[in-house]
Amino acid sequence: MDGRPGFPQPNRWLVASVAGTVAVAVISAAIGFIVLPTAQDGPQYRGIWNAICSAAGVSRHWVENESIVFPRGGPVSAVTITPQTLSRRDPEAVQRGGVLATRCAGCHNTSQAVAPLLAGQDAAFVYKQLSDFQSGARTNVIMTSIVKELTDRDMLDVAQYFASSGHVASGDDKSVETEPSIVAHGNPTKNVVSCAVCHGGVDHKAGAPFLQGLSASYLSTQLNAFAVSERHNDSGEQMRNIARNLTETEIKEAAAYYAGLKGRTTGVTWP
């Protein structure tokens, strides 16, 4: 034994640099995940755990003893949509829904820019929107007054009628190369998936509307409403989270693209 210690003395500069790096990381995390979020107003920022989840972008139930979020004093949708929702057509329901839908023709037709064309639309989507207008999760003076007297069966039948009164065409007069990047690829750097993943083209999510042929004005209005939470009937906040991260140019490009598609067949029969 030569009397030297069994382990070499640590390099003080290395220890200092590692300690400094760890300290900076801890302080930055504390500021970004706790200090800044808790400085915001709203129940979703109450408490350290809620602040951390909010800063990390994790959707959760923020308010104690509440099962859903109520942004800006309004409820979100309580309708649960699955791939099986209204997946089977009922001829009797379609016929009854056609009678009920006579009042819809004035607004939901190809000549209107402020109301969506519903012929051939996803049945689960139509049912969900009607239910949301009735519950107050989605608001519109005209629609709220129309649906307030409808029963759940009425809304189911109307949804089946519209889904069977036309169909979304699989082809269009534009090539894939003309699709805006936000439609075809999304924006991974901002955690935005492509529109085609949920709204048809790549895949279709249950309860998501088909966008082909809808007016650019209507689409832009809805995206901007989601972006500022004026519209908040997306139960999982998926559209609000996406719309907040879209630029004005991306919204205009997506709206113009879908408006230009030949989305529906002609010759839709109204009751």
Rank of each mutant, 00 (worst) to 15 (best):
M1V: 12
P5M: 09
P8I: 12
R12G: 04
W13T: 14
L14W: 06
S17A: 14
G20A: 01
A23I: 10
V24G: 07
V24E: 08
I27E: 06
A29W: 07
A29P: 11
A30W: 13
G32P: 05
F33H: 12
F33G: 13
P37V: 11
P37S: 07
P43K: 05
Y45N: 07
Y45K: 02
G47H: 13
I48G: 09
I48W: 05
I48N: 08
W49R: 11
N50T: 01
A51Y: 09
S54V: 05
A56V: 09
G57H: 06
V58F: 09
W62H: 10
W62D: 04
V63N: 01
E64V: 09
E66N: 08
S67L: 10
F70T: 14
R72A: 14
G74N: 14
V76N: 10
V79H: 10
Q84I: 08
T85Y: 10
R88Q: 08
R89L: 03
R89D: 06
R96F: 05
A101H: 06
R103V: 13
A105S: 12
H108C: 03
H108W: 05
F125K: 15
Y127H: 13
S135T: 15
S135P: 06
A137S: 10
R138S: 10
T139S: 09
V141L: 08
T144I: 15
I146H: 09
V147H: 11
E149P: 00
R153K: 14
D154Y: 01
M155Y: 07
L156A: 11
A159C: 06
S165D: 11
G166H: 12
V168K: 12
V168D: 14
V168G: 12
A169T: 15
A169I: 13
S170W: 15
G171C: 12
G171Y: 08
D172T: 15
P180M: 03
I182S: 01
I182N: 01
G186W: 13
N187D: 12
N187Y: 13
N187M: 00
T189I: 15
S194E: 13
A196T: 15
A196D: 14
V197W: 04
C198Q: 11
G200I: 04
G201Q: 04
G201V: 09
K205Q: 09
A206E: 09
A206K: 00
A208M: 00
P209E: 04
F210A: 10
G213K: 05
Y218W: 12
L219F: 09
L219W: 05
Q222W: 11
Q222L: 02
N224G: 07
F226V: 02
A227T: 11
S235M: 14
E237K: 11
M239G: 02
I242W: 04
T249R: 02
I251F: 01
K252Y: 00
E253P: 03
A254M: 05
A256K: 02
Y257G: 01
Y258K: 00
G260Y: 03
T265W: 02
T266Q: 03
G267E: 05
G267S: 03
T269Q: 07
